[in-house]
Design a binder for these strands. Structure first.
Lengths: 108, 108
DNA sequence: CATATATTCAACCTGTGGGTTGAATATAGC
DNA sequence: GCTATATTCAACCCACAGGTTGAATATATG
């Protein structure tokens, strides 16, 4: 039972939250900025950010009335580490994984 | 919106299901075998297997009254691919990822 | 100070998740 | 054929997830 993985996997199971993570990969942003592309209420996005925060996927720094949200890649790293355990099921050599990773940098 | 990732992440957010996956990494098994280590009803485990199946993480082949459950690593591969997009956040070179993966083969 | 902006908090609704129990179904073995 | 085994199906419960709206809070700005 790994609470980190439980929360990280659960947080990333929602496509809206994965889009937010993707957004944050380009740099930190305010909640308003993150909410802007979505066709849902600001409050809904605010909740999503809170879920990501609770899972440790993002960090929040307050600057006046604005909250700066930044990606913390550690849980994703943990997920990559977890997934790597099954890497032998799709190839025996890490350079094959490397090739796969390279080919999949853009897609969702 | 990637249904594959939605379902795979959601399925793997449950520690029981991750344990089942881990169990299946050692080879295919019957539902009864999978249920045996857990302190919950057989039916609960049967449900978990169904969730994994729906997510494409396992495949089922019927042999008489026994159902053989086998790991299908493709969705995990997809997750590894997704996570790899953020690899630049923790290192710039894939050989660093490789080292990390090697060091984390055993843990949960 | 008054108002606009950025954000959370709280209450609510509906759907789904994980668990239970009890029954149904199908195959195996004596 | 009868009984035991392997499994799903169905109904139910409770907790949580994702969304809404309305209000509260805090900071900027004219």
């Amino acid at each position: 039972m790994s609470p980190v993985l439980n929360l990280a996997f659960a947080a990333l199971s929602d496509p809206t939250r994965r889009e937010i993570v993707q957004q944050l990969a380009k740099g930190a942003a305010r909640v308003t900025d993150l909410a802007q592309p979505f066709d849902m209420s600001f409050n809904a996005v605010s909740k999503h950010v809170k879920v990501l925060e609770r899972a440790g996927l993002v960090r929040r720094t307050r600057a006046g009335r604005e909250h700066h949200i930044a990606l913390d890649p550690e849980p994703i790293r943990r997920i990559a580490g977890w997934a790597s355990r099954y890497e032998r099921f799709w190839s025996d050599r890490l350079d094959k994984l490397e090739a796969f990773l390279k080919a999949n940098r853009k897609r969702d």
